[in-house]
Each structure stands twice: as C-alpha cells, then as structure tokens.
C-alpha cells in the first residue's frame, strides 16, 4: 500500500494498450466503441495537431498522420483515446485512486475487446506523470534521489535538463522508464519538474489477453515504489502525507 498525500503531484495517469490485430482494421470499430462508452465519455474530438504519430526510421523523425479520437468525460478530467490498434485511458488532475482508475481501465478495455477482437497485446504501458513546482535556485539533490550528475569541475547549475533511464524488469519483458526533466512552469519565479514514471511491457504478446489485471497490479506497485525511492523526505513534505 503506497503513501497517501493531501497534495499529490500527479498531473496525469494513463494506461496504454497497443494491440496485435485479430482481423483487418474495420472502419466501423470507432463508432461501435463510442456507442459503448459514450455514457461516461460523451465529448468526442479528433486529436489536434502533431504528436498523433511520429515514426523513427533510421535515426530520422517523420511526422505522419495517425488520426486518434479522444473521448472526454463531461468534466474533462478523464478521457479515452482510440486509434489504429491503440487504446489509452487517461486521468488528469485530480487523480482519484488506483482502485477507481483500475476499474475504469478494465471496463474500457473489456468494451474495446468486444468490438475490435484483438489477437493480443503488442505493448501495455502504465504511466504516472508528476509535476513538482520548486523555488528557483534550489539544490535538486535535496529533493530527488534521481537527478543529473555533473562533474565537480563544471558549474553545478542548469537552466534545463532531462534525465532518462530505462530499467529492465521481468527478464527484459518489461521496462521501467524513469525521466526527470524541466518543463514549462505555470507560475512566476518557480521551476517546474516532471517526474515521469512509465512501466511498459515491451515484448509483444508476453502477457496474455486475459492477464492484464496481474500485469497492471505489478506495474502499479513498481511505479509506486519507484516514486518513493526517487524523492527525498524534503520533496515528500511538499505533498503533505496523510497518515
């Protein structure tokens, strides 16, 4: 059981499924899927702009159109995204509880399976994005146990940074992708950092189509532990633990 915080830093939690198709893509699937989820996610829109699909090919990036539909809840705090063999369930701030998020994931996934009949999981990802606002000119190692290290003879200051590691789990079937980076702040005289914790099954079809629950529980536990390991007590105090 993880710690509870009065001001948790989670700005977004998402669960992503990429599927091995069980049949050729049918253009009627998005419509049938929407019919099944529209009570909870009535607001639909096509994703605007880039980010929909970028493919890396031999070190180069190409933007390609990859239309993705987004279905928002009435309060716009949660959404479902559906594209070609892709399903994502996102919760934006305020994050509810793992129990509620998990129930939603399983419900939406079941409805997707009913209409799309996928053959298997190509990728599963559970991701928590935390945003931490700090005063300028702080020492980052007082707040994080995971941070960029600069050699002593260089100035110990940075305007922006990004630290990324991928840690293999489960005999490299899974990866824990950890990133700490500066992001665009919302308030004056602050720096904002994103602690992005992303647990991913990277080997296709290594988790059976009916075994997502075990995988999700394990992924969530790993993410929760990683979060606590990455932050110091000083950082933890910003979120006000509820005991």
């Amino acid at each position: 059981m993880g710690k509870n915080y009065k001001n948790p830093p989670i700005v977004e939690a998402l669960c992503e499924f990429q599927f091995v198709p069980g049949q050729p893509w049918d253009a009627t699937i998005p419509g049938m899927f929407y019919e099944r989820i529209k009570n909870k996610f009535p607001i639909k829109q096509q994703q605007v702009g880039f980010g929909a699909g970028i493919v890396i090919k031999e070190g180069e990036a190409f933007g390609i159109p990859s239309p993705r539909m987004q279905f928002f809840s009435e309060d716009r705090h949660s959404l479902v995204q559906s594209g070609l063999d892709l399903l994502t369930i996102n919760y934006l701030k305020p994050y509810p509880t793992w129990g509620k998020f998990k129930s939603l994931i399983l419900e939406i996934l079941r409805k997707y399976k009913e209409v799309a009949s996928p053959k298997g999981f190509k990728k599963i990802g559970l991701r928590y994005i935390n945003k931490i606002d700090l005063e300028q000119n702080i020492k980052i190692k007082e707040y994080f146990n995971f941070y960029p290290l600069t050699p002593d003879r260089l100035p110990q200051a940075y305007k922006s940074f990004q630290t990324v590691i991928d840690i293999p789990y489960e005999n490299e079937r899974d990866l824990l992708h950890l990133a700490l980076m500066t992001i665009i702040p919302e308030r004056p005289d602050t720096i904002s950092l994103a602690l992005d914790i992303y647990y991913i099954m990277v080997v296709p079809e290594k988790v059976g189509l009916d075994n997502e629950l075990n995988w999700l529980e394990n992924a969530h536990t790993t993410i929760e532990e990683a979060f606590e390991i990455c932050i110091t007590d000083k950082c933890r105090s910003l979120f006000e633990e509820v005991k």
């Binding site: 700005v11 977004e12 998402l14 992503e16 980010g51 929909a52 699909g53 970028i54 493919v55 890396i56 990036a61 990859s66 959404l79 995204q81 892709l86 994502t88 996102n90 934006l92 991701r127 994005i129 945003k131 922006s160 990004q162 990324v164 590691i165 991928d166 840690i167 293999p168 490299e172 990866l175 992708h177 990133a179 980076m181 500066t182 992001i183 994103a194 992005d196 992303y198 991913i200 990277v202």
Partner: peptide
C-alpha cells in the same frame, strides 16, 4: 544500465516518448 532496446533512442529531448498519448 541502458539496455539495447532502450526507449531513450525513441525519446525526443524534453518532450516524452514518440507517439505521445499523454495529454500533459
């Protein structure tokens, strides 16, 4: 430890993994 299939090579500086599904 950076495994061979690291996501890092598919990671655009600052902006997260490719085929971004995060609204944030």
């Amino acid at each position: 430890v950076i495994p061979e299939n690291s996501l890092y090579k598919n990671y655009f500086p600052k902006y997260g993994p490719v085929d971004e599904t995060s609204v944030f």
